[in-house]
Design a protein around this nucleic acid. Structure first.
Lengths: 418, 418
DNA sequence: AAATTAATTTTGGCGTCCAAAATAATCTTG
DNA sequence: CAAGATTATTTTGGACGCCAAAATTAATTT
């Protein structure tokens, strides 16, 4: 249970509530903020006055007049997040690619760059140096002053250890233990975070209210790999080291098929693109996975073949569905979630995998536990990784910096995030 | 994110903090409450004054003088929870047995009764009626007035659906869907809860600070069945229907050994007492489990045989360890817990199962996820189910009734819990 | 230009907390 | 044994948060 409370806590909480209202619904006049937050007009005046002074919020009076027709009474004064309050750099590390984005405090992406890099064969420290230099290059290219940047947030595939700031294991690298947070913080002296890409997608879904996230939601991302974002009571569950919900590397069959991660029997070895392809080609289970993403064209052809009646292809998708289904059944037994959401490129083949997936769930879990369970699908673009990373960064700024206190120089804000 | 905050919230939170301090550490003078909670003496005076007026707290001045030797200065006034503030009835439903306990507001058990009942063959509604009549008999026997009883809390083995108040499935019953909360609330008009027994053990462990429960802890109970209590950020995780952490019925092997729950391949079918016994006797996997608990003497003999070198017995314990290990590996991949705690009667055979258990974890989960993982064992008595049920009830009273507000008649307190 | 309308700000009151001063209840000491 | 000394608790006074209601502001309507 949390500790004692005082009036400081009250103000902090209410500042956060106001910021959240502005962030989610966009600019709004004070009256409306009052309605949305349940705070009295007097309090809204007081809080927004502070937030304006702190530079987090600005008045946008002009746009107000654009509203429909002429209205009686004193006109509203539109308030919005101040885009220039602080900037956030988001980085996405994936196989063969580095992606950078610069977002302002309103969460708008100002600049965006993709840098192809041969990640796989790189030694960890070589990569770390390259990451720093590319980040440097990107920041310079944006012409934003370094001390206007409040945070650098990195998303990576695989086991991203938020605590140590290392990528413990990732399909993007042959080697294990790639340092990310350390080198960046040292180079730029800006707070930096590392997180798993699936969790960042989940952050994005929450921030954009794409789903009802009350209770427990398990979002499963199917595609080149198999990821999961676990949302418990409206917050992404990260686990001890931030590597929670490694659904793809949950064991499916003891001593089973060879996985990219080097172990045998992972779910992913049966249900990811390469796993499906391997079964469809009737290659032995211990065939090493390719060190690169399967071309989506190849998967599309395989799907077409299955739909056209190709026995091997059909069997491969069924096998994938069964693996996912048993994985979900085990997850359900453990977590009894309110809903499961399927997303990602792999859902294109949902018609092929769903029957065996559902059959496996039915076989693998007590009926009572799946009674009220909802299984939905959700279209999720690739951009949700960068987008969600930015959303998570904004939430951090809101609650850990701007909800806290009085006007501070950006330097001090960095302190708070560190 | 939580909504707006006000001074009401502050007082509520601080009242709760004070009650918690008294509940965990026992009676204490005001100065000490101040030290423990971080609240100022002035605030402690104010809060305790209210709590005393509300009947939740009383002064216990006499005992203070019993402390060691004579001290200078104004003597402290010991404050403690008022035992008579409200009473709680805890009920434990297990195979062939109903257990009742009456606890006062200090959490002390005042009365305790065990009632043998042939649960297994009973039809649900017959059992419900019997549950009500036995509860009635118990309450009468305690001579506590019905309207002094604030809540009735029931713990049961199996899938206990807190939302519907039904025991969805339990080894104690042949039939499914046994109503518990409905009949009790109707009969007594007192708020009633239903929960899984393993979760109640976890509540007890938390309340008594038996472990560091920061982050995520998975407590596994080995014995006649296999249970789990999942503690996330200091609170027991219940899942959508309160049936979270059904670890024993997590699938281990698709289409595997027959389980008591009627399905095939559950972890419990390999690792519970009867599962181990079945393998040791080389009975086929589809041999129906016995409808009663395995005698602990039988298990002790089996353990002795294994330690004496009996091949079949050794293999049976190894198989159990491997099943638990893979189950834990899957749980780790999903939840990345900070620590795992093994408890229950089954841990007597830990020497026999641990090697294969650890080997299975090593085989089933990425090394990086188990790096900082701690696996501990903890002695947990049978009484922890009733004890934990009471602890959970006390926490509910503290935070949902006495933290809230001004003096209320017991009737109104019941309202709050409902 | 006056009346109306509606947003925002100001004022005054209440509740909470805390620091500091006052009070209470005991022990120590000359 | 009375005057400190010491420590616990209560009281007092001030700060800050919230809200309701009154006042003010800035527009439209009449």
């Amino acid at each position: 249970m949390r500790g004692k409370a005082d009036s400081d806590l009250v103000r902090r909480q209410n500042r956060r509530v106001v910021l959240e209202a502005l962030r989610f619904d966009g600019p709004a006049p004070r009256v409306e903020l009052g309605r949305k937050t349940g705070l009295s007009p007097a309090t809204i005046t007081s809080i927004t006055m502070q937030l304006i002074q702190d530079g987090a919020v600005i008045e946008l009076d002009d746009i107000a007049s654009l509203s429909d027709g002429a209205k009686r009474g004193r006109p509203t004064v539109l308030l919005g997040l101040n885009p220039d309050a602080a900037f956030t750099v988001a980085v996405k590390i994936s196989i063969g690619m580095l992606e950078f984005a610069l977002a302002d405090f309103a969460g708008i992406i100002r600049e965006r760059v993709e840098v192809p890099i041969a990640t796989y064969e790189m030694l960890p420290e070589i990569f770390s140096r390259r990451l720093v230099s590319e980040t440097q290059r990107f920041i310079v290219s944006t012409r934003v002053d370094l001390n206007q940047i409040a945070q650098i947030n990195v998303a990576a595939q695989g086991v991203a250890d938020t605590r140590s700031g290392l990528i413990a294991w990732s399909p993007a690298f042959k080697e294990r233990g790639v340092p990310v947070v350390g080198p960046l913080e040292e180079a730029f002296n800006i707070p930096c975070t590392l997180a798993n890409d699936a969790n960042m997608i989940a952050e994005g879904l929450i921030a954009r209210r794409k789903l009802d996230f009350s209770g427990t939601t398990a979002a499963v991302f199917l595609g080149y790999g198999i990821g999961m974002g676990l949302v418990i009571d409206g917050a992404v569950y990260h686990g001890a080291t931030g590597a929670g919900a490694e659904f793809g590397h949950m064991n499916h069959v003891p001593s089973g098929a060879l996985c990219r991660c080097g172990r045998a029997g992972c779910l992913e070895a049966y249900a990811s693109d390469y796993g499906i392809l391997r079964s469809a080609k009737n290659l032995p289970d211990n065939t090493p996975p390719p060190p690169h993403a399967v071309d989506s064209q190849v998967m599309a052809e395989l799907e077409a073949a299955a739909r056209g009646g190709d026995k091997d292809a059909i069997a491969a998708f069924q096998k994938a569905g069964r693996a996912i289904g048993f994985g979900l059944a085990r997850m359900i037994a453990l977590l009894n979630p309110d809903r499961i959401v399927l997303a990602g490129a792999g859902t294109r083949a949902l018609d092929l995998i769903e029957p065996s997936l559902r059959a496996a769930i039915d076989e693998g879990v007590v009926a009572e536990l799946r009674n009220n369970l909802k299984i939905e699908t959700l279209p999720v673009g690739k951009d949700m990784i960068i987008g969600g990373t930015i959303d998570a960064g904004m939430r951090r700024l809101d609650s850990e910096v701007y909800a806290i206190g009085p006007a501070l120089p950006v330097e001090a804000k960095k302190e708070l995030l560190a």
